[in-house]
Nucleic acid binder design. Structure first.
Lengths: 157, 157
DNA sequence: TATTGTTATACTCTATAACTATA
DNA sequence: TATAGTTATAGAGTATAACAATA
């Protein structure tokens, strides 16, 4: 007869559970490392999106990052109070703002890259360079296979 | 000179981001699959813990699963209303209850095992059996290396 | 005095709708 | 009529402290 009991310990041998467990742990750790800079994950995503393409409207940021436009207002408000972005007049659309990075934000960018580097080193500390490469490829295939948008985190929306 | 810009797209090549992205996606999917049965992740964890060792006290469940004792009250309340557990008198401690699975809960257990099987098949659909085995081993090593408790999800607490 | 379970409260977060000004 | 941004509000969820009964 088969064992019909799935215990808590057996979850540790299931890929979906391990991914969820590790993902939650890393997300919490990431948030903690970002907190001292005064940046939360949503603000982090906005700053990175602007570093890539500055002067986007709130609507463009909302669509790209999956953050609702209502929530985006608060994110930009906070970043503006922190003097990390400015709401400039949009060249093509008087309804919209061109959300623009300040010099202070550009100075801050290197510090934003540190947590993810540190996390990657820490979490893969027990792996060889080859194993890291294998893991990266497998995770990228899973992400693509699940239809997830590259670089867009489901929990931002 | 080095490229000082880390864009949103570059996150898709970072192991911590991919783990967090996949983990969040799978956790949401898992919750959705469980919802029609009327069970949320915390209730799921309690039912599995009781399937492994029935008659535990709320305190024992709290300690094992990382759920606060205050929150555990509501979880057990709901399960009791659903006639999935009973609060029986504890044989050794009159302060505590022996939380016990009902026959209805035991009938429900197989349905609780389905979502995680389905998720595992779905998420690893593009992988060979060998690749699945490699991925599983790597994830287990990451989880152990990070000091995570096997089978215990950080977000339950 | 510490433990088990419970309750109440305050706080955060989120989702929704409704509003303005522009297009 | 639709879009960009804003505001208000209600609901869910969470964290904390305080409480009664028992050890």
């Amino acid at each position: 007869m088969t064992d019909t009991t799935l215990g808590i310990a057996e979850l540790a041998a299931r890929i979906p559970f391990l991914l969820s467990q590790l993902g939650a742990y890393l997300a919490d750790d990431f948030e903690r490392r970002l907190a001292p800079i005064g940046v939360d994950p949503r603000a982090y995503a906005v700053l990175l999106a602007l570093a890539e393409c500055d002067g986007q409207s709130q609507r463009e940021l909302s669509t790209q990052l999956g953050i609702h436009r209502n929530a985006m207002v608060t994110v930009i408000d906070t970043l503006e109070h922190q003097r990390l972005v400015q709401r400039l007049t949009h060249p093509q659309n008087r309804r919209a703002f061109a959300v623009t990075l300040t010099d202070k934000a550009r100075d801050l960018l290197p510090a934003l890259y540190e947590p993810i580097d540190a996390l990657e080193d820490e979490i893969t500390a027990g792996l060889s360079a080859e194993e890291r490469a294998v893991l990266l490829k497998l995770l990228q295939r899973l992400s693509a296979g699940a239809g997830l948008i590259p670089g867009v985190h489901p929990r931002l929306g």
